[in-house]
């Protein structure tokens, strides 16, 4: 027996079997494709939210607002301690005038209002750029508490908690996606099992004859198992295609509406590894369905 030719025959028979039961095959592929598409949407959302969280966390600077009248020595001491902490990459002084200019740039419609005030209401501040990974460091919170205890410091602003909460939401989205995906994949595997079983019924005579003429079990069951795997593979590829279309659609929507908020959240498609896992999920569902259907007492 030549194994290469045998595998080619298995594949040929598997494809022929799927084609003969093409309506059921289409239903099965659509179901697994839709299931994996939903899983992919969750993964897409989780991946992008995760990216946003990472970006925000890394980009956010700590702002230390100083009390009015804080002298030069106090500011220099604060900056030295910040740089010695091994959490801060750079320090930057922001004068009240600079703060007013920034406000005027960000809120142009209110710029006139600040000009009418008799004095500048913005305090002096020092911005601390964190080193990469510092935001996740356990040392950050005590460091910020130390800064806040400085007599010259009015307030320390670094809202690390909302970043952590957002991280929790991302984890929840990913976990929900995984759980939903598992349930949907089970359903898809069940559908595939039924399609394969139907194919087996259609080929009952062939199976009997094959068995009577001494075809090995693996060659009798192989096409049905392979049929399940092929359905899963097609479903996985369909899901990827749908996700790609949906992603492109969202990008086009963002471009058309110039929606800055959505622009922040939809930044990238699934990584090649995640795409591979999605297709592999389909293949596994197909393998499970095919295995269930082609057990000895069915075939």
């Amino acid at each position: 027996m030549r194994s290469g030719a045998a595998v080619a025959s298995l594949l040929d028979e598997a494809l022929a079997g799927l084609w003969r039961a093409r309506r059921m095959t289409a239903v099965s592929v659509l179901q697994i494709g839709f299931s994996l598409f939903l899983v992919g949407l969750f993964l897409l959302a989780a991946e992008n939210l995760g990216g946003v969280v990472d970006a925000l966390r890394e980009e956010t600077a700590v702002t230390v607002f100083l009390r009015p009248g804080a002298d030069e020595a106090a500011q220099a001491d604060l900056e030295r301690r910040a740089l010695d902490s091994k959490l801060v990459a750079a320090v930057r002084r922001v004068s009240p005038e600079e703060a007013r200019r920034r406000f005027a740039r960000s809120f142009a419609s209110l710029a006139g209002a600040t000009g009418t005030l008799s004095s500048n209401p913005f305090p002096s501040s020092v911005e601390l750029d964190l080193l990469p990974g510092a935001a996740s460091s356990a040392a950050l919170r005590p460091f910020l508490a130390n800064l806040a205890a400085f007599p010259a410091v009015e307030e320390v602003q670094f809202d690390v908690d909302w970043v952590r909460r957002l991280r929790g939401v991302v984890r929840l989205v990913a976990a929900t996606g995984a759980a939903t995906g598992f349930c949907l994949a089970l359903g898809a595997a069940f559908t595939i099992a039924n399609v394969v079983r139907l194919t087996i019924l259609l080929h009952r005579d062939e199976i009997d004859i094959l068995r009577l003429v001494g075809a090995p079990e693996i060659l009798i069951r192989g096409p049905f198992l392979l049929g399940g795997v092929l359905q899963g593979l097609l479903g996985g590829l369909l899901a990827l295609g749908l996700l790609g279309l949906a992603f492109r659609g969202v990008l086009m929507f963002i471009t058309a509406t110039e929606n800055v908020l959505l622009g922040v959240f939809v930044v990238r498609f699934l990584s090649p590894a995640t795409c591979g896992l999605l297709v592999l999920g389909g293949v596994l569902a197909g393998l499970v369905g095919g295995t269930i259907a082609s057990r000895r007492h069915h075939v």
């Binding site: 027996m1 025959s9 028979e13 005579d205």
Partner: peptide, 27 residues
């Protein structure tokens, strides 16, 4: 084995009926 009721596969041609066993054996 030759069966009284032939056990031929109606959806396959004469060639396919005769050779499909060989196909499964990887010939």
């Amino acid at each position: 084995i030759v069966f009284q009721d032939y056990k031929l596969l109606p959806t396959r041609t004469v060639f396919e009926n005769v050779s499909f066993v060989l196909k499964f054996l990887g010939v």
